[in-house]
């Protein structure tokens, strides 16, 4: 059989394809190889390697940057599931380094301190796929036009409060629904209102969904939270502080994995939630000094 056919790497299909494989799964923030093993044992579909979980970043303040490559490599060596890592918004040099480290996905993340006040990274320039946060449909489409292969609703990281994630998801899903009802002339106005490229708006009108998978992040702290956002249209969940700031991380991790699969089955959600111990202590959004979701544009 002929084996001389050309291989193409880093294509849109290959980048979006990995996000396709993560659907129905949980991506967990981990700060060391031990945490990564706990996440993998619990059934995480991927881990996000970072030095401090968002609630600690929030508490400590200061500038938050890309993690030490050695720490990321330690986590890559510890687990067989995909390993993601975060770069600062607009910091393409950090992204180039993460690509060189061989991470499976780069999160251009508002959880870190932005490096550029006007420009996100040109993600088409990379072979490694990117995930970006969004608070509304316009932001999601701008990130996709820059090359993001996965969108996650931002929520408010490090709060253990799901209300912002719900707001962002409802905004994105709601506008997608409205666009599918719009006539072709109205799509021009939608593109203008959303400050998004017209072809992407037209694609949504045709398909009724984003051109890339849409996951949810920011404030998910319990199996019930995971079920809620999946029922609202998220195709997978990122859990940051919610696992390793709970009283029994291994049990919480395992329970949220089951919740992402059986999100429509309240009986299973009851079973996995019973006797879990304390979820992370949450924060009221109105009491926050910094809203991370406001980073990025």
């Amino acid at each position: 059989m002929g084996q001389n056919n050309k291989r193409e790497t880093g294509t849109t299909l290959v980048k979006r394809g990995l996000a396709e494989m993560l659907k129905g799964g949980v991506i967990m923030d981990v700060v060391n190889p031990d945490h990564a093993k706990i996440a993998e044992d619990a059934g995480a579909a991927a881990v996000m390697a970072l030095e401090r979980v968002p609630s600690d970043i929030r508490r400590d303040g200061g500038v938050s940057r890309m993690s030490d490559p050695e720490m990321i490599q330690g986590i890559q060596a510890a687990v067989s599931i995909p390993v993601m890592a975060k770069a600062r918004i607009g910091h393409f040099a950090e992204a180039q380094m993460l690509e060189a480290v061989g991470v499976d996905y780069i999160d251009e993340s508002e959880v870190l301190t932005p490096a550029d006040e006007a420009h996100h990274i040109d993600k088409w320039a990379f072979a490694v796929p990117f995930v970006c946060g969004a608070t509304n449909l316009g932001e999601a489409l701008r990130r996709i036009s820059e090359g993001a292969a996965m969108i996650r609703s931002k929520g408010e990281a490090g709060t253990g409060n799901v209300v912002e994630a719900v707001r962002h998801l409802r905004s994105i899903v709601g506008d997608i629904g409205k666009i599918t009802q719009a006539d072709s002339a109205e799509l021009f106005d939608w593109a203008k209102q959303l400050q998004a490229p017209l072809p992407l708006v037209q694609e949504i009108a045709d398909t009724g969904q984003l051109p890339v998978p849409m996951f949810c992040a920011g404030g998910i702290a319990t199996p019930a939270d995971a079920s809620l956002v999946m029922q609202l249209g998220a195709q997978a969940v990122f859990v940051g502080s919610g696992i390793f700031k709970s009283s029994s991380p291994a049990k919480m991790a395992s329970a949220i994995v089951e919740a992402a699969t059986h999100y429509q089955d309240p009986a299973i959600l009851v079973k996995v939630s019973a006797g879990l111990g304390g979820a992370m202590a949450g924060l009221e959004i109105s009491g926050l000094d910094t809203k991370l979701a406001e980073r990025g544009w």
Binding site: N5, L18, M21, P82
Partner: peptide, 23 residues
């Protein structure tokens, strides 16, 4: 992931190559 690729493969019993995505 950086090594994930797509390519055309010959499949026994199919006349034309199949475009295969490896992730």
């Amino acid at each position: 992931q950086i090594d994930s690729f797509e390519t055309d493969i010959e499949v026994r019993g199919l006349d034309a190559p199949f475009h295969a995505v490896f992730i």
